[in-house]
Design a protein around this nucleic acid. Structure first.
Length: 375
DNA sequence: AATGAGACCAACCGCTGGTTG
DNA sequence: CCAACCAGCGGTTGGTCTCAT
């Protein structure tokens, strides 16, 4: 009955991923697309469980991920959406396509939660109703069921207002991180994303990782590692290539031993605005290898990223990663559309009840006024 | 310079709903 | 129908880094 186990529990590697592992994973997904995580460890030889591979891909290697500083706009979006959705980080992340749920969650826990708490203290609203943390259960238990239900109703109303505000934030022009909600993206073909800055490709992520790795790894234990060390003399010109797929049909990914990783990577990072990387992104945002463009290409398996910052409607979540893209479309478009409809249809009806309900809701956690006055 | 505390974040753990055989 | 599995999610952990003392 059932299926065979997903992966061997013994011999599964844990801990931080190495650049080699990243390359193997990326190249495999490049060829086969995301999904079938169960097959990845066996087909690639990675000593990682499928779960770990999926997490590594979705949180770090996936193209279109922006890492680093959150903008004020993103902060606002997260705060509003957290007020609306609670700690449903995946749902929140669906409205910030460049950010992963893990990233948002970490940012919330390390920055925003503190920020909000400090703000509440400053405003003298620290009434032990820690709604933002979802720890208001104790206080809720002290109130009657009727009161709780009315408060919940008010909370929903407040959250809807918050989403309205969050949506309206997107109209600010020239904001580099002014990501329209998914439903708006197609309406703004002119809002071209600079792929190398806003959408960091997975190859770029790996290259950055490699650079850090080279800096922080004085000891080179393997031949490939020593090869990588030599790359530091390349004046930041890393190059990706020669990830050979010996048997594409079986999905086995081999890193060519003789060439090591110095030929594996070719990453021209001398100019951030003109990055030539390992994986090509076509006009549709497709993330592909030359092999995908031309099956007769002798350089099978060599990826090449050609950043095309001026391409219209660049959507790296599209393209070869259609499975994931499809999922994103479903999670991004449908909920927002429904929410918007909900908001619009209900706004007028709710307005009449607002005054009395808000009066009840004052005893709750953070209100709309608190969230909007934060900045 | 040493060190301890706090911040940060990548990755793991455990749970859940849906799917498969 | 049911047990096993898969994929995804949110909570938590632990290693590393930064900064103050």
């Amino acid at each position: 009955m059932g299926r065979p186990p997903c992966c061997e529990k013994t011999g599964v590697k844990k801990g931080p991923w190495t650049p080699e592992e990243d390359i193997i994973l990326v190249s495999y997904i490049q060829e086969h697309g995301p999904g079938n995580w169960r097959n990845i460890p066996t087909n690639t030889g990675l000593l990682r469980c499928s779960k770990s591979c999926r997490l590594r891909w979705t949180n770090y290697l996936r193209p279109g991920i922006k890492r680093g500083n959150f903008t004020e706009h993103e902060e606002k979006m997260i705060i509003h959406l957290q007020a609306l959705l609670g700690n449903r980080w995946a749902a929140i992340a669906s409205y910030l396509p460049q950010r992963t749920d893990n990233d948002i969650k970490n940012y919330w826990n390390t920055h925003l939660k503190k920020k909000l708490n400090n703000n509440k203290k400053v405003e003298g609203h620290d009434d032990n109703h820690d709604h933002q943390d979802g720890t208001s259960a104790s206080s809720q238990s002290k109130i009657s069921k009727g009161q709780w239900e009315r408060r919940l109703q008010t909370d929903i109303h407040t959250a809807k207002q918050a989403l309205c505000d969050a949506l309206s934030l997107d109209t600010t022009p020239n904001n580099n991180n002014n990501n329209p909600p998914p439903h708006d993206q197609e309406q703004q073909p002119s809002s071209v994303q600079t792929s190398t800055t806003t959408y960091a490709s997975s190859a770029e992520n790996i290259a950055k990782l490699l650079q850090n790795w080279m800096k922080n790894s004085p000891k080179s234990t393997s031949s490939s590692s020593s090869k990588i060390t030599q790359m530091s003399s390349l004046n930041n010109n890393l190059s990706i290539g020669a990830v050979s797929s010996s048997s594409p049909s079986e999905g086995t990914v081999n890193v060519t031993p003789g060439q090591g990783l110095d030929s594996l990577f070719s990453f021209n990072s001398s100019n951030n605005s003109d990055v030539s990387q390992s994986v090509s992104v076509d006009e549709g945002g497709n993330f592909s290898t030359p092999e995908n463009h031309n099956n007769n290409n002798n350089n099978a398996g060599i990826f090449q990223v050609e950043s095309k910052p001026n391409l219209p409607d660049f959507k790296p979540e599209n393209g070869n990663f259609q499975v994931e893209s499809k999922q994103n479309m479903e999670t991004q478009q449908v909920p927002l559309t429904m929410l918007e409809k909900w908001l619009l249809d209900d706004a007028n009806a709710q307005a009449e009840q607002e005054d009395q309900l808000m009066g009840i809701g004052m005893g709750m956690g953070m209100t709309l006024a608190e969230t909007t006055d934060l900045f």
